[in-house]
Amino acid sequence: MVEEHFIPEKYTKSIESGSFTWSSPSNIALVKYWGKKANQIPENPSISFTLDNCKTTTSLSFSKKEDTTSFAFEVFLDDEKKDDFKPKIETFFKRVEAYLPFLKEYHFKIETSNTFPHSSGIASSASGMSALALCLMSLEKELSNTNISEENFIKKASFLARLGSGSACRSLEGDLVVWGSHDAIKGSSDLFGIKYPYQVHSNFKNYQDTILLVDKGEKQVSSTVGHNLMHGHPFAQERFKQANKNLSDLISILKDGDLDKFIALVESEALTLHAMMMASMPYFILMKPNTLKIINKIWEYREKSGSKVCFTLDAGANVHVLYPEEEVNKVLEFIQNELVAYCQNGQYICDVIGLGANKI
């Protein structure tokens, strides 16, 4: 499949005004993507757990306008106007205009809210851009007046979301989503995310993710800048090979339910992601001292208790604590007794693997 597939035929219906609302979750990558080519194409494939409680709700209101020479929109976060969000939205609109040719015909009001802190390493751009892409797809579906299948609706929404934020293409469905072409995963594509198509052991059903909010502030280095620093990175090519191999290995791990191998792979991926940041030029560190303290506490607890708890990290300081459903009570007790002290204002979010976005 190529990009031209997503260019629509002429619309058959006219709509003066209206609104759509979607809720879309964040996701947490198990095999990370870090580094991208032109047009938001990943340098390596990735796979993620879709979350449930960490989500963005976006309402898109629209009305026809006379001047169709430029984009017109306003952005609000938690009812507060956010003009500093506009450059990113405008860049997104420019990238997707060929696939959504109605964009300049309307004035849009984008109202969004998160259930978690913005820009703190919980993939707010993933949930936010996927929710916006779904709202735009709902409008296109009405303009097209055709019976687009749910599969094609989601596929195009994922394609569009990717052009706003790469990892956003993994937030539309659940519970495991693959993005990036991989020889061993049928249907995988660099253009959009797909539901993981193979058998998953019951050990991973209702898997838990408790997110420890080590630092709720904005990251010093954005993910966009970090991805760009992979160009010319001395270890980039080996990293891309490693990610491909890890995704191959994960297929059998997910099938067999081997939690020890899962832990080793997931934690290695998290630390490799941050190692690539530290070896960039210019180099940077997104982990905080308390991030490392939490990691060491998890290792100590696992060694003593035999627990199958592990951690992963996104591009930020916060720690995602992953563990099987059967360990909920024990792990939450451990978190409350030993890890909350390292969280900013003692805050953390209890989440569980979810099934994707919902129209409201």
Score class of each variant (00 low, 15 high):
Leu292Glu: 02
Ser280Arg: 02
Leu229Trp: 05
His233Tyr: 09
Gly257His: 15
Glu238Lys: 13
Asp215Cys: 04
Asp258Gln: 07
Met281Lys: 11
Leu250Tyr: 06
His231Pro: 03
Met276Arg: 04
Ser252Glu: 04
Leu259Lys: 13
Ala270Leu: 06
Glu218Cys: 09
Ile251Lys: 12
Ser222Arg: 08
Gln237Ile: 05
Phe240Gly: 04
Leu250Pro: 08
Leu292Gly: 00
Val221Met: 07
Lys216Met: 10
Lys293Met: 08
Asn228Cys: 07
Glu269Gln: 12
Ala236Pro: 01
Val266Tyr: 06
Glu267Trp: 06
Lys245Pro: 05
Gly226Val: 01
Lys219Met: 04
Gln220Thr: 06
Thr272Tyr: 14
Pro234Arg: 15
Met281Gln: 11
Leu229His: 03
Met281Gly: 05
Arg239Pro: 00
Ser222Asn: 14
Tyr283Met: 11
Arg239Thr: 00
Gln220Ile: 04
Met281Glu: 09
Glu218Trp: 05
Met287Gln: 04
Lys241Trp: 10
Asp258Gly: 14
Gly226Cys: 07
His227Val: 10
Met230Lys: 08
Lys219Val: 02
Phe235Cys: 07
Glu267Leu: 02
Ala275Tyr: 02
Met276Lys: 04
Ser252Arg: 14
Ser252Cys: 10
Leu259Thr: 05
Met281Ser: 13
Gln220Met: 02
Met230Ile: 07
Leu271Val: 07
Leu286Gly: 03
Met281Ile: 10
Leu271Arg: 05
Ala264Thr: 13
Met277Gln: 01
Leu259Val: 07
Leu247Gly: 03
Leu250Thr: 05
Val221Cys: 00
Leu271Cys: 02
Arg239Lys: 09
Leu273Asp: 08
Met277Ile: 01
Pro282Asn: 08
Lys255Asp: 11
Met278Arg: 11
Lys241Ser: 11
Ser268Ala: 13
Phe262Ile: 10
Leu292Phe: 01
Thr291His: 00
Met287Glu: 02
Gln237Asp: 15
Gly257Phe: 09
Phe262Asp: 02
His274Asp: 09
Ile251His: 08
Asp260Leu: 15
Gln237Tyr: 10
Gln242Thr: 09
Phe240Ile: 08
Leu273Val: 11
Ile263Arg: 14
Phe262Ser: 02
Leu247Arg: 11
Ser280Ile: 08
Asn228Glu: 11
His227Ser: 06
Asp215Tyr: 05
